[in-house]
């Protein structure tokens, strides 16, 4: 789903009763004639109800698609999405680092730790999947995607390893498994900063 798609869908929804293709049939179905009237006029109350329904549907679609990302047609927009993706991945990495730090100090219950790491791994995987689903507009964007994927893939992999270890109760292994996270976090932050 895309914001652009959402807006188009909303336009279509708003124009539903009045769009060129549907205008004729809508008129036919909803024109009524008052007994004293000679000519056909639109049935205003019905039309108003349709207007309200269309506006309501449009608003619902706008709200539903407001947070989505998707198709881009220019380099700067793609770079901006890459920066947002890097920030979201860095957030997951930082969450995992904090959880591991707390677990190492005996400040987290095993189940809470496992849950926190599972969510961090899932978030990182989701942001990578979402970003990779966006079509890069040109060759330069291809290079940008490869560069970011070079950071996201090891991050996702490390977070998956942490999740597995936490689920198995191998808390003592977590610090060594998380050793690469600070460097990845720094590189993600640099990537984001360079493209903001």
């Amino acid at each position: 789903m895309t914001v652009e798609w959402g807006v188009i869908a909303v336009d279509q929804a708003l124009q539903l009763p009045f769009s060129p293709s549907s205008h004729h049939s809508w008129d036919e179905r909803h024109m009524t004639r008052h007994p004293r009237q000679r000519s056909w006029t639109p049935a205003e109350p019905t039309r108003r109800r349709f207007d309200l329904a269309a506006v309501g549907l449009g608003l619902l679609l706008l709200v539903a698609t407001a947070g989505c990302t998707g198709l881009v047609r220019s380099d700067p927009v793609y770079a901006s999405k890459a920066a947002t993706t890097a920030a979201a991945a860095a957030s997951a990495v930082e969450t995992a680092q904090l959880a591991v730090q707390e677990a190492a100090a005996g400040k987290l219950f095993g189940r809470s730790l496992a849950q926190t790491l599972a969510e961090a791994a899932s978030d990182a995987g989701d942001v990578q999947a979402t970003f990779d689903a966006i079509q890069p507009p040109d060759g330069r964007a291809d290079a940008l995607r490869d560069q970011l994927d070079g950071l996201l893939t090891p991050a996702v992999s490390t977070l998956d390893d942490l999740r597995t270890a936490a689920r198995r109760g191998h808390v003592d292994q977590l610090p060594s498994l998380a050793a690469s996270l600070p460097r990845l976090d720094d590189r993600l932050a640099q990537f984001q900063k360079a493209r903001q």
């Binding site: 957030s91 930082e94 904090l98 978030d123």
Partner: peptide
């Protein structure tokens, strides 16, 4: 300071 953008309840407890 860590750049964590919370999207789970677990992060609110950290």
């Amino acid at each position: 300071p860590r750049g964590i953008d919370p999207s789970h309840l677990s992060q609110a407890a950290l």
